[in-house]
Design a protein around this nucleic acid. Structure first.
Length: 306
DNA sequence: AAACCGGGGCG
DNA sequence: CGCCCAGGTTT
């Protein structure tokens, strides 16, 4: 790590300031309540993958009332999980969460495993979610690094405008910042995420409200390299296969009986206004991909949720 | 490493 | 309208 100018403040100063701020300013998310189960934490992490937390809250409350344990969800049809997912997006997550519930019920005695490797073996759980559950549900002391934390580390520690270092580097930097105390480590992981979500935001950081502005390397250096991180430009949603898939899923979620395959394929065309010439193969392609994903089950010319 | 996977909110 | 979001899986 290159260090120029005055020596950086001790790590403990950063974590102490962030944790103190978190205790005062953290959002009161329902899964942060003291009585939340490990299952509740896991569900919140699944729902929060690429979806803003505020939009997750009502879905989480409904989900936990209906399926308070992994075995409760495992006993339901997968399609019911997809239906309850509503418009959260990425419906594969609903399917994967159901599969994870089955795996927990069958292999782990209906108890969410605390071990990172066991968590990684569950469907739909990757490096981030495994660490998040281990830390927030079981008080483990691993670094939890999501997109918010990466940005906070990039700015406060690395003096960069945006995350751009390899993810392993951010993990190492976060590990070096973690307090040794178990509870403080979990709080710090949550605090770094929280800061990135509501203060140290990507678009317009609110440095006037930041508890570590005085020790932020990026601010101290005069906000250099203030350019967005290079990321592959996501294709337009309007007219995309993703939108076509969404239309089909919307039809199937609202249907209380199987629908004709032809109607499902036709749904992909509804309400679409592509800029150029429409792709005549898109509706069928979207439908087939949903079947391949296991989100649709076809039988006798009809189709239904799994 | 890159592509793919929804949908909504915000500047 | 462009960018971003408590990522993960597949190729």
């Amino acid at each position: 790590m290159e260090t120029t100018g005055a020596p950086a403040p001790p790590r403990s100063e950063l974590s102490a300031a962030l944790n103190a701020w978190f205790e005062l300013s953290a959002r009161e998310l329902p899964w942060r309540a003291p009585d939340t189960t490990a299952w509740g934490v896991l569900v919140s992490e699944f729902m929060s993958q690429q979806t803003q937390v505020e939009r997750v809250i009502p879905h989480w409350l409904e989900w936990m009332e209906r399926w308070p344990t992994p075995s409760a969800l495992a006993a339901a049809e997968p399609g019911e999980a997809v239906r309850a997912w509503k418009r959260l997006g990425y419906p594969r997550r609903a399917l994967w969460l159901h599969r994870a519930a089955v795996e927990i019920a069958e292999r782990h005695g209906d108890k969410v495993p605390a071990d990172v490797d066991a968590l990684l073996a569950l469907t739909g759980i990757g490096p981030y979610t495994a660490r998040a559950v281990a830390v927030f549900a079981f008080g483990d002391t691993h670094p939890v690094v999501d997109t918010n934390t990466r940005r906070v580390i990039a700015r406060a520690v690395q003096g960069r405008a945006a995350a751009g270092m390899p993810a392993a580097r951010d993990l190492t930097d976060m590990a070096a910042l973690l307090p040794s105390d178990r509870a403080a480590a979990a709080t710090f992981n949550a605090a770094a995420m929280e800061l990135g979500a509501i203060v140290c935001t990507a678009r317009a950081p609110r440095c006037d409200a930041c508890p570590i502005a005085n020790i932020c390397e990026w601010r101290g250096a005069g906000y250099p390299d203030n350019a967005p991180e290079k990321r592959p430009k996501q294709a337009a949603f309007e007219g995309s296969d993703r939108q076509a898939r969404g239309k089909i899923m919307e039809l199937l979620r609202s249907a209380d009986a199987p629908v004709a395959v032809a109607d499902a394929v036709a749904a992909a065309r509804a309400g679409r206004r592509p800029r150029g010439a429409p792709d005549p193969a898109q509706p069928r392609r979207a439908y087939d991909s949903l079947v391949a994903d296991g989100l649709l089950v076809e039988f006798e010319g009809l189709v239904r949720l799994p």
